[in-house]
Computed example of a mutant assay.
Amino acid sequence: MENRICQLFGIQYPIIQGGMIWASGWELVSAVSNAGGLGILGAGSMYPEVLREHILKTQKATSKVFGVNLPLMYPNIEEHIQTIIENQVKIVFTSAGNPSIWTEKLQSHGIKVAHVVSSIKFAKKAENAGVDAIVCEGFEAGGHLGKEETTTFCLIPDIARNIEKPLIAAGGIATGKQILAAMILGADAVQMGTKFVATREASVHQNFKEKVKSLKDGDTYSTLKEIGNVRLVKNKFFDEIQQAYSSHASKEDLIKLAGERRAKQGMFEGNLDDGKLEIGQCASLVDEILSVDDVFKSLIEEFNSAKKEMDCLDFF
């Protein structure tokens, strides 16, 4: 399959694995790249020395291209940038910050830059900053969200008609049919997170994988907008957040409640009660834990089958 994203990144399939904290280690990333997609290391949960270790291990595990996701609001950004440049990573996905600060520096070292946005306004700003591609992430996504509450399938066509750069759709996409739908709406590729959390190669705890597999419609909710909008699984910790709101908790109280280790505690260490469990709405479409190879086979088969069905439709 050839399109602008495949050509830009040098990949076989326009399927990009989201660079999720605690989930996107070298095993997942190399498996996705080896399968023909684009694996992305999740630098948001890594210290500089840990990122370097995962880059080196990924380079040993695959000869294919891979990237690093870099949330610009996180600490150690300058060290991460240097690590990425020194180890000749070819692709960086930036998010949660101003892309104009680092895009030119990264590109001067031959690195392709994509930036994640949640609105037309920020898509235009990213394009003006000179990024190579734009990721539009809808409200269905897991983890940290934009302040806007626009859904993915509204966001795709709206941004596609307002920019010239290649467009990657993200948020709530877990099936081959959804990939086809996203492309019909104007996306060149898709970024998938939740689907890859429930794989054997993901670095999250097995307890969390099993939890994701069990989730149903309505089991996730966006909250903590005052300190950083995030979509979470409803658990004991989530109930504590709701109680805090009922008690008119201050912003400082919410920051203290959320803590610095909650995400690691839940997703990496497997504490499903007290941890911060970040996952997308499309978890309800995930029924089993598969290998990355099996995920790709399923997505491609369903995409091709759906495309044939569309070719047969004649409504008008």
Rank of each mutant, 00 (worst) to 15 (best):
N3I: 14
G10H: 06
P14Q: 11
P14A: 14
P14M: 15
I16K: 05
Q17S: 07
W22V: 01
G25N: 14
W26Y: 14
W26T: 06
I40Y: 03
G42M: 09
G42N: 10
G44S: 13
Y47A: 13
Y47T: 05
V50F: 10
V50T: 12
V50M: 15
L70V: 09
Y74D: 13
E78Q: 12
H80L: 02
H80T: 15
I81M: 09
E86W: 11
K90M: 06
I91R: 04
G97A: 11
G97T: 14
N98L: 07
S100M: 06
I101P: 07
T103C: 07
K105E: 07
L106R: 14
H109A: 04
A114T: 14
V116N: 01
V117Y: 12
I120S: 06
A126C: 10
A129M: 07
A129N: 05
V131S: 01
I134H: 02
C136E: 02
F139C: 00
A141S: 10
G143F: 05
G143P: 06
H144G: 11
G146F: 11
T151F: 00
F153A: 00
I156H: 00
D158P: 08
D158H: 04
R161A: 12
R161P: 07
E164C: 10
E164W: 03
L167T: 09
I168M: 10
G172K: 02
T175E: 02
T175N: 01
L180N: 06
M183T: 03
I184W: 06
L185V: 01
L185S: 03
V190F: 13
M192C: 04
M192Q: 07
A198C: 04
A198N: 04
R200A: 09
E201G: 06
A202R: 10
S203L: 06
E210Q: 02
V212I: 02
K213L: 13
L215T: 01
Y221P: 03
Y221N: 04
S222N: 13
T223E: 10
L224A: 10
K225P: 04
N229L: 13
N229C: 08
V230I: 03
V233P: 00
N235A: 08
F238H: 03
F238W: 03
Q242C: 08
A244F: 09
Y245R: 08
E252P: 11
D253G: 08
L254N: 06
K256G: 15
L257V: 12
R261S: 15
K264S: 11
E269W: 03
G270C: 10
G270W: 07
L272E: 04
D274F: 11
K276D: 15
G280P: 00
A283G: 00
D287E: 06
E288W: 13
E288R: 05
L290V: 15
L290S: 10
D293V: 14
V295Q: 01
F296N: 09
K297T: 05
L299K: 14
L299G: 10
F303T: 04
K307R: 11
C312S: 05
L313H: 11
F315N: 07
